[in-house]
Design a protein around this nucleic acid. Structure first.
Length: 133
DNA sequence: TTTCTAACA
DNA sequence: TGTTAGGA
């Protein structure tokens, strides 16, 4: 059985714990079009694992001292997942405790290798570019 | 109690 | 970004 597909939905408080971001930041990023979590009938946000990953990427990028617009550009240029279907769940650690631990250290490891290389390379060129200006 | 939007500091 | 008001 392949029952380990993470179709979990998280409340904003859960998203805060999983990403280390504040609810304020998460809402702000959404308002800027960086992600679009689902909504319940009561209009409350419901974050999928893809959303959590997206938030993690935003966080990483923001920590590079990039402005929100640049981060948005990078994410738009790097369409990842968000298809609602994952073919290789083995690429992601799914133990709650384990993921928390990983996040505390190197969440880069959460990204598929191909994307990580691409992302890092993109980040590098941008950081260098900004440094030259 | 939790989350939401809007708006001000 | 923090924080508060006022409502669902």
């Amino acid at each position: 059985m392949v029952s380990t597909s993470p179709n979990t939905r998280y409340t904003i408080s859960a998203a805060q714990k999983r990403t280390g971001l504040t609810g304020r930041q998460i809402r702000y990023y959404e308002s800027q079009g960086l992600l679009t979590p689902e909504r319940t009938q009561g209009n409350q946000r419901r974050f999928s694992d893809s959303d959590i990953l997206q938030l993690l990427r935003i966080k990483e990028l923001m920590e590079k001292n990039l402005d929100i617009q640049t981060v948005k550009q990078l994410l738009l240029e790097n369409p990842e997942s968000e298809s609602g279907d994952r073919s290789g769940p083995s690429a992601f650690p799914r133990t709650g405790e384990n993921i928390q631990d990983v996040l505390g250290h190197r969440l880069s490891s959460l990204y598929p290798v191909s994307n990580r290389v691409e992302l890092l390379s993109l980040l590098d060129s941008i950081v260098v570019k900004k440094a030259q200006e």
